[in-house]
Nucleic acid binder design. Structure first.
Lengths: 345, 345
DNA sequence: TGGAGGAACAAAACCGGTTTGGCAAGAGGT
DNA sequence: ACCTCTTGCCAAACCGGTTTTGTTCCTCCA
């Protein structure tokens, strides 16, 4: 099949390319009769603008980019990213903007990817995820002038607009919930400490625990189920094991549940488990996992809207998207009197 | 920052655009001295070709497309796609080809997406996943002349090249394995029956079971954990419940495991569970799931190589990628004498 | 009645590459 | 010394849009 161009339309309509272009873009300077005739011919011929020609001329590619650098093995079962992408897509598809996805194994390749995308004019803007404590990407994007929106924040975003969730508040809700159940020794199995949101949660966790007189332990992992399992084993084997563990994602919570089962530790009898990201996974295990979650898809949609605004030159402000909510299920319960911590802090 | 063009390079080198283009593309007609000088200047200025200009002129966009239409909710925890994408990416990144990802909620939008991509010259080729029994996409892509490779097959691909895995053989291995453990009543919780690979597995399953005198039951689902759980509940509540269930993906196997725990059916004591896709998920639960799996990432890489060949005009043949392997773990075991099926077929 | 102003369209330049067609200089053959 | 072939480069066309500038023709008003 042959793809019609505006030159074909112009020939059929007996006008020039420029008139066709004006008509198709709803710009003044074309009579209603001519415009209608051109539109009819374009529709009949099934014309669609060539993105390459538009990008070359107009300067915009109609593409937004996302680089993910978590290992593919763990990414596959982590609902967060796919949900986020689905949310982004829902917003982009409607405006005929495409999403360019790049999965890199090592983190060092990220700046190179952004630089290449920028030099090749491949994308109009990018999403920035997994912000780190010292993140070279922020400076790079500012330097390149490549529009970007941070998925996270608000700290450490430089001048980049960001959209985050009020995790501090959610963390407090979780700690209060567990404390109310009698837990006085709570562990937290975290993601990589160099990630900003890990650090932010940690700070909030410490503050909430301190306010309630709860002892806390932290075990850092790389977000994989394996490390989550290892951390759980270590925590449960300690002389004074925690009575509750909060995991930074649902996959690790799942692994923790399996480790508890394997070690003969009843859940929630002797151990309460809380998962941070709430996904269908949490409802598919036994007992179902108490989890903290939010609508990640709508989060992605909001981030996408802001990036679209930014690319279009409209003013964009940073802002909080939502507060994650705690959904109690079967994996949390009161501390049995026998195992309650003896020395309150 | 300003992006250098070949005109800038030409000016600095004291030659014309065409000479620069020839030098940068390693084509004959430029002296070694001039070529080196041009390359040095290009490197120094950090030149990268504009994809839009290349696409417009050369006709190739440097982009391959993938449309996924499974619901985002279930997709998120399904390792298959992310693994596949990771494998595809590994092959594309090296050649500076990008992957355009489109997630659509309803299936009807798929042909429209392909048509639009084609008309907009947005992609050079596409991957076709989740082939259906009556799949309009095959004819559409052939009609448009849009290069495509089927992830699956080999049946029903029309003239499109395909890469599949030898699932029939793997199905037989699973049935033989279970039969050797004494199972005579095996259920299969499948994906949507209109998907080609579901049907293919079903045929192989029936053949293998028939050859070994094993009774089979099938329960179709939409691949979600919820439906997997529902199907499991129904199967286990039957008057003569199966002693083993094979699930078409790991998420449903996980759900099945939870249902068994909830119903007080010991695994593998009274029920053996086999998961089809093997992922880290299978090793994170208790008991760990016996699973049939393969290196999906390398599968994706192979499919990507073929599509790249096809786009480049090199001859491409269909072929089998690998045979999935069965990894026995803790979720399968012998049938206890008390529960063994009484009436052998 | 003639000059200003605007509407409707044509013509051409431009975006940044690739590709084709020349053209001059030098090499090689006779 | 003349012709041919090759080498190395320039000039220009082209891809398919957008945008700027020009050119008619018509209307309105003094």
């Amino acid at each position: 099949m042959k793809r019609p161009t505006i030159a074909d339309i112009a020939r059929r309509a007996g006008v020039t390319k420029s008139t066709v272009s004006f008509a198709l873009n709803d710009r003044p300077g074309v009579s209603a009769a001519t415009r209608d005739r051109i539109l009819a011919i374009a529709r009949e011929m099934g014309w669609q603008p060539s993105r390459a020609a538009r990008a070359l001329s107009g300067g915009r590619a109609g593409v937004l980019g996302l680089v993910v650098d978590r290992p593919a093995r763990t990414l596959g079962i982590e609902p967060f990213f796919v949900q986020l992408i689905a949310g982004i897509e829902s917003e982009l598809a409607a405006r005929d903007v495409a999403l360019l996805l790049q999965m890199v194994e090592d983190r060092g390749a990220q700046p190179a990817t952004y630089r290449r995308w920028w030099a090749e004019r491949r994308v109009d803007g990018v999403f920035l995820v997994d912000l780190r404590l010292e993140d070279e990407r922020v400076g790079l994007l500012a330097e390149l002038g490549l529009p970007a929106v941070v998925v996270g924040g608000p700290e450490g975003c430089g001048g980049l607009p960001a959209v985050w969730n009020d995790e501090a508040e959610a963390v407090r809700a979780v700690v209060e919930y567990l404390a109310a159940l009698g837990h006085r020794r709570i562990a937290r199995v975290t993601g990589p400490p160099e990630l900003r949101h890990t650090a932010a949660r940690g700070t909030a966790f410490a503050a909430a625990a301190g306010a309630l007189g709860v002892t806390t332990v932290e075990a850092a992992t790389d977000y994989t189920g394996e490390e989550g399992a290892r951390a759980t084993r270590r925590l449960l084997a300690a002389s004074a094991p925690p009575t509750a563990i909060v995991y930074d994602n649902d996959v690790m919570a799942l692994a923790g549940l399996a480790v508890a089962a394997e070690m003969g530790v009843p859940v929630p009898g002797r151990l309460s488990v809380v998962a941070w990201d709430d996904s269908v996974l949490c409802r598919l295990v036994h007992p179902p996992l108490t989890a903290v979650g939010l609508d990640i898809s709508s989060y992605g949609a909001e981030v996408a809207r802001r990036l679209l605004d930014l690319v279009a030159g409209r003013p964009v402000e940073s802002g909080c998207h939502a507060m994650p909510v705690l959904t109690p299920r079967g994996s949390t319960g009161p501390v049995p009197s026998g195992t309650v911590d003896a020395k309150p802090v």
